[in-house]
Nucleic acid binder design. Structure first.
Length: 466
DNA sequence: TCTGGGGTCCTAGGACCC
DNA sequence: TCTGGGGTCCTAGGACCC
């Protein structure tokens, strides 16, 4: 494993922070594709190579997603309105994003990253952290990190035709900043021990998490560089920027960053939103839109076999003020009807008479299973309300999702503990003639929904520890 | 030249419970 | 009759990232 030392400044810290460990070698890599969407378009259409390319929304309210480096020379930037981009660089090719293609290329790139590290944390379609300490038994030398970075760049170029920038350091922060620093086609490894000197002269805005608001507060007190932020006391940083944020940024400014590279981070929310070409004030139309968006978000939720407890509606008014209304159900749901009805109700709680430019519907409080009819009565029969309101009970009325013919019979024993990917833990109430009836809830809980399945349903299996 | 869509994390106040 | 404090959950909003 990587060599490790304890958190510097631990003793002088105002608060009693838990002992932390910092790496002593540049074993964290950050890699991202240069101008990803635009580069894919130039790759696929040779006539675009060497010319400014701008990918983004082409509607009246579109913004730039990615500008090629040729377009950046004209001052075109991500998140800029398309109108401004057109004004700055009228000769550019303006293209709508092709997300299906980008996703496919992204999968190729992530596969390549996986060849170099067992621990890859994707941050977006074109960006990831790699932990290269996991397979090494000794600290990674600067030369070894450079060599790995060089091979990754080579392989990505050979397979996808795209150029990436890679940074390496002893932490996520250093790796990320290093990869940014000599883009495009960059390769920058910060040697062990050189982190503080590397960070100190850079502008604070290089730290991910320092945006316009934070930068303005820091500039107000004369802090412009990372070194100057580090020179504040922890208390000053906390007072200026908020307790958690201030302390976090202050620690980062010292290079004290022990965040682990973490694959498989579970999603916390799912949402969809739409900006209209023209504002809508008609309540009837808004109601139809919010219902359609509820359907879209539930589709996405179900595609990931998730369900959620909190439904949110987001409304952006003509003057750009943004309001949210949310409500939390007693139990997670993935039922369109429930989400649609709630979203509609939440929409009525905001005054939309002045006109709306954007509506969104989101679901959070996610679980990977759904609890049906929380208020089902003791017979496991008719639900009396709540999140699910799904008919349950007798064989033959099982969910349409589970109508596949049984491939093989499984000897279910009444009383057996089982789990279901969607419905969670339960136990077998009875079985026979190709069907098994399950009550979802542990046995100590008196009330729980009952469902029946074909007994070969692959989503239903014995609990891991009976 | 008016400002996308998908997320994450934090804060602050109030409700509620012990 | 009046009083307290801590923990947790919920809601709304804001900053930030790609």
């Amino acid at each position: 494993m990587d060599g490790i030392v304890s958190w510097p400044g631990e003793e002088s810290s105002i608060t009693s922070r838990p002992a932390r460990r910092l790496r002593t070698s540049p074993s964290v890599l950050h890699a991202d594709v240069d101008a990803f969407y635009a580069a894919v378009e130039q790759r696929d259409k040779p006539s675009l190579r060497g010319h400014p390319v701008i990918v983004g929304g082409l509607g009246p309210r579109g913004v730039v997603a990615t500008a090629s480096y040729e377009a950046r020379r004209y001052g075109v930037r991500s998140a800029m309105s398309m109108a401004e981009a057109r004004a700055r660089c009228p000769q550019a090719a303006f293209l709508a994003p092709r997300f299906a293609v980008y996703r496919a290329v992204s999968a190729q790139i992530m596969d390549i990253f996986a060849e170099f590290s067992a621990l890859v944390e994707p941050l977006s379609l074109d960006e990831a952290y790699l932990d290269i300490a996991t397979s090494a038994h000794e600290p990674i030398s600067t030369e070894a990190a450079v060599e790995i970075a060089r091979r990754i760049k080579e392989k990505v170029r050979a397979v996808t035709g795209l150029s990436i920038s890679v940074g390496a350091g002893n932490s996520k922060l250093v790796a990320k900043i290093a990869s940014d620093l000599d883009k495009p086609d960059g390769l920058r490894v910060v040697p062990a021990g050189a982190e503080a000197d590397f960070l100190a002269p850079l502008p604070v805005t290089r730290i991910p998490g320092v945006g316009p608001a934070t930068a303005a507060r820091l500039h107000n007190v004369g802090v412009h560089t990372i070194g100057e932020l580090a020179a504040l006391s922890e208390e000053e940083a906390a007072n200026l920027l908020g307790r958690a944020h201030g302390r976090h940024l202050w620690a980062l400014a010292h290079g004290w960053d022990d965040r682990a590279v973490c694959a498989d981070r579970a999603a916390k929310s799912v949402s969809v939103e739409d900006t209209f070409d023209q504002d809508i004030a008609d309540p009837g139309r808004l109601r139809i839109v919010v219902r359609a968006m509820a359907e879209r978000v539930v589709e996405r939720l179900r595609a990931h076999t998730l369900s959620g407890r909190t439904i949110s509606v987001k409304v952006r008014l003509t003057d750009f003020t943004t309001l949210t209304r949310s409500a939390t159900l007693p139990a997670p749901t993935d039922d369109v009807r429930v989400v649609r009805r709630l979203a509609e109700r939440l929409l009525t709680e905001v005054d939309t008479s002045s006109g709306v430019r954007l509506i969104g519907v989101g679901i959070s409080g996610l679980t990977d299973w759904v609890q049906l009819n929380l208020f089902a009565d003791d017979r496991g029969g008719r639900p009396t309300g709540g999140a699910g309101e799904v008919s349950t009970g007798t064989p033959g009325t099982a969910s349409p999702m589970h109508t596949d013919p049984p491939a093989s019979a499984v000897p279910w024993t009444p009383g057996q503990d089982v789990v279901h990917r969607r419905y969670g833990p339960g136990w077998v109430q009875g079985s026979g003639r190709g069907w098994v009836t399950v009550r979802f809830e542990t046995r100590d809980t008196p009330v729980g929904p009952v469902r029946s399945f074909r007994d070969a349903d692959p989503e239903l299996h014995p609990a891991e520890s009976p």
